[in-house]
Design a protein around this nucleic acid. Structure first.
Length: 288
DNA sequence: TCTCAGGGGCGAT
DNA sequence: ATCGCCCCTGAG
């Protein structure tokens, strides 16, 4: 019997808990001192102790290349903080959520998950994502627990609306299915990573259920556009209350403003401000 | 038990 | 350019 079935790496300036359970990803849970997450082809297992990261990937083990990209380990975090610390609002947010990070999640999972986010609560989104995975995703046993991968897009494209409704997608079910069909028929995943910001946004907004805000989320959480700040109701509130922008400002103007103000790192600033104004507490998502 | 709004987007004016 | 509506759930 081997002593360790996991790896150990150095991890500095990284608050794993706040990052995994904050509003950007819906696929992480905390069991027995470990965080477990699921993508379309990986189960991820993570634990942080001081500056050590203990981790394992399944079914392909020891996939550090995957993990490194997913956790965005290769960024100059201190430089990012320095750049976005433009005012007391951001600085206070950074103080309240030290070492909060951005992830780089899978494109298709992010797209589909955020379609579910439309007029929905984070709890409901997390629930739907788990129902979908349980119903359509492959199962894998890890640590004697059953985990389910996020379903393949092909499977979701072929799903019956009634089955999607059982996953509590509600009025989003038809968008969800069409979006999955679109990803497959357009072979979008193989093209979108090469697109410019404008091209990516236009190609996303064609898809049913995706408007400006959800396109923002997909772009900054899965396509690496660090300049794109998702402009949702919370961020709008921040823009108007903290930065005195016109409440009727168009999303495109707001994007231009934040792009300039945060020097191309609006996604990072947005993550701090978002958690700050909504008073995020990771504990709420950690239960038995 | 009941009301209400939630990380928006769509379709009708 | 505005505006009502959408499924469902947890919170109050």
């Amino acid at each position: 019997m081997q002593k360790h079935n996991y790896n150990k790496s150095i991890l500095t300036n990284y608050n794993l808990q706040d990052t995994l359970l904050g509003g950007q990803a819906f696929c992480f849970d905390f069991y027995n001192e470990w965080f477990y997450g699921f993508t379309q082809n990986r189960i991820i297992k993570l634990k942080q102790e001081k500056n050590n990261l203990f981790w394992q990937t399944f079914p392909k083990k020891d996939d550090f290349d995957f993990l490194q990209k997913y956790l965005k380990l290769n960024v100059n975090y201190n430089e990012i903080l320095k750049t976005i610390s433009k005012d007391s609002h951001v600085i206070n947010a950074i103080k309240k959520y030290p070492n909060l990070r951005l992830l780089n999640q899978d494109f298709e999972q992010t797209l589909l998950s955020y379609i579910i986010s439309s007029n929905n609560t984070i709890k409901n989104i997390r629930k739907s994502v788990r129902l979908l995975s349980g119903k359509f995703g492959r199962m894998l046993k890890v640590d004697d627990m059953k985990f389910y991968f996020f379903p393949n897009t092909e499977t979701l494209a072929a799903a019956k609306i009634e089955d999607l409704l059982e996953c509590k997608l509600g009025f989003r079910a038809k968008f969800f299915k069409k979006a999955a069909e679109h990803i497959i028929s357009q072979n979008l995943n193989s093209k979108i990573h090469q697109m410019t910001e404008h091209e990516a946004r236009e190609n996303l907004k064609i898809i049913p259920g995706i408007g400006d805000k959800i396109a923002d989320c997909i772009m900054c959480y899965s396509l690496g556009f660090d300049n794109v700040i998702p402009i949702d109701t919370w961020v709008k509130k921040i823009f108007t209350q903290y930065y005195n922008l016109d409440p009727k400002i168009k999303s495109e103007q707001a994007r231009e403003w934040s792009n300039e103000y945060f020097e191309g790192l609006g996604a990072w600033a947005g993550q701090f401000l978002f958690e700050y104004i909504r008073g995020f507490e990771a504990k709420k998502y950690i239960l038995s």
